[in-house]
Design a protein around this nucleic acid. Structure first.
Lengths: 187, 187
DNA sequence: TGACGTTACCTGCTCGAACAAGTAAATCAG
DNA sequence: CTGATTTACTTGTTCGAGCAGGTAACGTCA
């Protein structure tokens, strides 16, 4: 792997921030930017989704179901890049709210088929509107060309992260050497 | 809207991604991209931070303290764009882990000054390394120029989101008309 | 058929994040 | 000085996310 920058950044990295920008923050300009954009974006999504009574993340499940029809939980997990445990709980809440129904798979007794209810269809266009608004808020004053550029950049980053995550996962299964024993929390 | 698919998918689940790109997902390309990048990035950060016993988010607090020295909780909240309640708990955990100390403000009896402990200094370079690695993983094979472009795009998005969030907050304080009464959860 | 490993799902736990509500101190208005 | 408002922080609750552990159903291979 390349190490374009190891020590405290000199003039490279990011020079834009003329003065204060402390060393630690300056160290990872992309990381920091992603972090903040992510939080803002999620918060905004939460605000908008609140109108229709959904929590961020739930709308993704519903959209997936509306688009692709009934699916097993595992499929939802895989397609949304989520976690089985999280999906179990999210589905449970959506079912409780009446947006989703659960049905045992006829071919696999382990699996559960999730399907959107008729009631959920009323939500669909609202969610679509919300996502359109979210997209507007995200794009701001950007011209369309710039938006396309942004999407491209994001996809590039996604590819990098996916690769890194894969590599790191493999590395950890290969070498379960140092099992971390505790993190900062009630320690 | 359109009803591209209502019944159960033929070849079960999803067989491919090349063609379909469902309407809902297609609707908000940036939103979707941000969502996935955010989750991947956070997950990766979690993996790396796990080595030093920190949870994602905690390192930001520590970096802020290392860079700017002892501060009030409110300052941390404001600078990190976080929430007072979240900060209270995060600080509590960091204190419990021995990375942070709390001291009453001499000038304001309401305030608490947070300062990094000597023990935390051992963490500092590890966290710096982790952020460097995170930045590498995020950047991938991008040339430096492309990275700068990415940062610029992200900052542009951040500005848009900030503006939108501000506008939405104002709009809601002005017009507390329709108080949402319930969301999907244990409904 | 039976042992073994995998898969699909559930439960318990912790943590960050957000909202609501409350306390105490500081600040402002009369 | 008194009363109202703002500020700083705490606590309770819910939700998404992740890890760990457990169960039941599949698949395979001997």
């Amino acid at each position: 792997m390349i190490r374009p920058d190891s020590g405290p950044p000199g003039p490279d990295a990011v020079e834009a921030a003329h003065v204060p920008m402390p060393p630690s923050v300056q160290a990872g300009p992309m990381a920091h930017a992603i972090f903040r954009v992510a939080r803002l974006h999620r918060a905004l999504a939460g605000q908008l989704l609140r109108r229709v009574g959904l929590h961020p993340g739930q709308e993704l499940v519903m959209m997936q179901l509306w688009d692709h029809g009934p699916q097993r939980q595992t499929d939802l997990v895989r397609l949304l890049g989520s976690d089985a445990a999280t999906m179990t709980r999210t589905i449970k809440r959506l079912e409780h709210a009446g947006f989703v129904r659960r049905r045992p798979s006829p071919t696999d007794k382990r699996a559960t088929i999730i399907e959107p209810t008729e009631a959920s269809l009323a939500l669909r266009h609202q969610v679509d509107d919300i996502w359109a608004e979210l997209e507007e808020c995200t794009a701001g004053e950007m011209p369309e060309k710039r938006q396309a550029e942004a999407v491209q950049v994001l996809e590039e980053i996604e590819a990098s992260l996916t690769l890194a995550a894969t590599r790191l996962a493999q590395q950890q299964t290969d070498d379960p050497a140092a099992p971390p024993e505790g993190r900062a929390g009630r320690g």
